[in-house]
Amino acid sequence: MSDERRSELAANLERVRGRITAAAEAAGRDPAELTLVVVTKTYPASDVALLAELGVTDVGENRHPEAGRKRDEAAEAGARLRWHFVGGLQTNKANAVTRYADAVHSVDRLRLVTALESGAAAAGRRIDAYVQVNLEGRDDEPAGRAGAAPADVRSVADAIASAEHLRLAGVMTVAPLDADPDDAFARLSEVAAEVRAEHPGAVAISAGMSGDLEQAVAHGATHVRIGRSVLGERPALG
């Protein structure tokens, strides 16, 4: 079964990498600028180990404690990977997440910055942090779902940049449902430029998933978060 699964993952990875390359070239960009983060939520650690064998360097998870357990199991199998926490994060779980995550893409409020800084300091680690931007509704209204409203991004970014054990990597978004992702990614590009104007090192843009990676790359994404197109249909949650 592992040989069959390995072949399936290899074929899927080849297709996704081809899409990323084509999207980058269409946008006049170097494909080497793009990082593929394979989102492995609900898939077993055995898949993560196979991905590592196939050259994947970055994986994403969105639930704790599943993410921590899987990281440990994959490490025991010999996988050496960069772990990205990409899901909404409760403040009271931030301390635990900093023990294994190398990057957190979902920082959307000042209290979470404080909690992540405290956890990273206790763990003796430095974590990359992305400001998650909510692009639903008007820029000046409170976010209805995960993510900081665009008007609040600067304060969150400044707090991350001031934290000793966090590094401001850039910004992240999830395109709104039932809307043209081009509009969201274009707006994210503007927000990213505003953040870079104050923090020149914050160059990362985490955007794009299986259904919209091409649009994200066209608008400057540096990290695309792909699950289904690499791993197949998601297993049912137990």
Rank of each mutant, 00 (worst) to 15 (best):
residue 125 R to L: 04
residue 85 F to D: 11
residue 40 T to K: 02
residue 137 G to I: 10
residue 200 P to N: 06
residue 167 R to P: 04
residue 90 Q to S: 01
residue 49 A to K: 12
residue 190 E to I: 01
residue 174 V to I: 15
residue 224 V to G: 04
residue 17 R to G: 00
residue 113 V to C: 12
residue 190 E to A: 15
residue 209 M to S: 01
residue 29 R to S: 12
residue 174 V to G: 08
residue 180 D to R: 14
residue 144 G to C: 03
residue 173 T to N: 10
residue 103 A to K: 13
residue 65 P to A: 00
residue 145 R to Q: 14
residue 163 A to N: 05
residue 148 A to M: 03
residue 62 N to L: 00
residue 194 E to I: 01
residue 159 A to S: 05
residue 143 A to Q: 01
residue 113 V to Y: 03
residue 213 L to P: 14
residue 189 S to D: 14
residue 68 G to H: 03
residue 80 R to A: 13
residue 138 R to I: 02
residue 83 W to N: 01
residue 1 M to V: 14
residue 10 A to R: 13
residue 162 S to C: 01
residue 193 A to Y: 05
residue 221 A to M: 13
residue 64 H to E: 07
residue 142 P to C: 00
residue 128 D to H: 01
residue 169 A to L: 08
residue 159 A to C: 04
residue 92 N to G: 12
residue 148 A to C: 04
residue 89 L to K: 11
residue 12 N to S: 15
residue 112 L to Q: 06
residue 72 D to C: 01
residue 231 L to A: 05
residue 23 A to I: 11
residue 86 V to G: 10
residue 27 A to H: 04
residue 164 E to I: 06
residue 87 G to V: 11
residue 83 W to M: 05
residue 79 A to P: 02
residue 51 L to F: 11
residue 144 G to L: 15
residue 98 T to D: 13
residue 192 A to I: 11
residue 38 V to F: 01
residue 202 A to W: 05
residue 48 V to K: 08
residue 17 R to F: 02
residue 85 F to Q: 13
residue 78 G to S: 02
residue 131 V to M: 10
residue 135 L to I: 13
residue 33 E to G: 03
residue 233 E to R: 13
residue 104 V to N: 06
residue 188 L to W: 03
residue 205 I to L: 14
residue 36 L to D: 00
residue 24 A to N: 05
residue 168 L to E: 06
residue 93 K to G: 05
residue 16 V to A: 08
residue 131 V to S: 11
residue 5 R to F: 12
residue 106 S to P: 04
residue 114 T to L: 02
residue 36 L to C: 01
residue 13 L to R: 02
residue 154 R to Q: 12
residue 74 A to C: 04
residue 50 L to T: 12
residue 53 E to F: 01
residue 8 E to Y: 09
residue 167 R to H: 11
residue 154 R to M: 14
residue 120 A to P: 05
residue 161 A to F: 03
residue 3 D to H: 14
residue 222 T to M: 08
residue 152 D to E: 14
residue 230 V to N: 04
residue 54 L to H: 00
residue 90 Q to N: 07
residue 50 L to S: 07
residue 53 E to Q: 10
residue 18 G to R: 07
residue 151 A to S: 14
residue 98 T to V: 03
residue 97 V to N: 00
residue 115 A to H: 02
residue 198 E to Q: 07
residue 182 D to M: 11
residue 41 K to D: 13
residue 184 A to T: 11
residue 179 A to L: 05
residue 26 A to L: 03
residue 188 L to H: 12
residue 162 S to P: 06
residue 199 H to L: 00
residue 150 P to I: 05
residue 232 G to H: 05
residue 6 R to I: 09
residue 174 V to T: 15
residue 68 G to D: 03
residue 32 A to I: 14
residue 20 I to W: 12
residue 122 A to L: 09
residue 206 S to A: 09
residue 145 R to Y: 10
residue 128 D to C: 02
residue 207 A to N: 10
residue 200 P to G: 13
residue 77 A to D: 00
residue 67 A to L: 02
residue 30 D to Q: 02
residue 137 G to L: 12
residue 172 M to W: 09
residue 206 S to L: 09
residue 149 A to T: 02
residue 76 E to K: 06
residue 37 V to H: 11
residue 78 G to H: 01
residue 35 T to I: 09
residue 177 L to W: 11
residue 90 Q to Y: 04
residue 178 D to T: 02
residue 109 R to C: 06
residue 79 A to S: 09
residue 43 Y to G: 03
residue 180 D to F: 11
